[in-house]
């Protein structure tokens, strides 16, 4: 009934959803961010919880408040978020990947080959 998942604090998930929108460009820097009430209605959650997510982003400097108008995305927020996500990338994605690979007998080199195979540009001459 909503996109919120179990087991992780909802306000963290709300903050991440806003960050994702900034990262993929759908929420541009300097543009107005959704209000607490809009986030609450969209995710069907308590406004206080949505407010906690927004506050977290204000503390991080991702959003800032313009008095009487609302929340806006801070200039430079996207670069800062990219840097932050890249730092955590290995831990969040590679460690579990390598653990599973190890459990089923794939070496890191095998994994690297698999990644190359998945991301290689399509062969010339095959169907377009």
């Amino acid at each position: 009934m909503s996109m919120v998942e179990e087991g992780r604090a909802i306000f963290l998930q709300i903050a991440q959803a806003v960050e994702d929108a900034i990262l993929d460009g759908s929420l541009a820097e300097e543009s107005q961010a959704p209000s607490t009430n809009e986030l609450a209605a969209f995710h069907r959650i308590n406004p206080a919880t949505a407010g906690k997510g927004v506050n977290l982003l204000v503390e991080k400097g991702v959003l800032h408040k313009r008095r009487g108008i609302g929340m806006f995305v801070t200039a430079g927020a996207r670069e800062a978020l990219l840097a932050e996500r890249r730092t955590g990338f290995a831990e969040r994605f590679l460690d579990p990947l390598l653990a599973e690979a190890n459990a089923i007998g794939l070496s890191p080199a095998d994994v690297a080959d698999l990644i190359r195979g998945r991301t290689a540009p399509p062969d010339q001459g095959t169907t377009p």
């Binding site: 607490t36 009430n37 609450a40 209605a41 069907r44 308590n46 406004p47």
Partner: peptide, 9 residues
């Protein structure tokens, strides 16, 4: 639920 939440907000 939706109307309660919206009006409460």
């Amino acid at each position: 639920y939706d109307r309660l939440l919206a009006d409460y907000a």
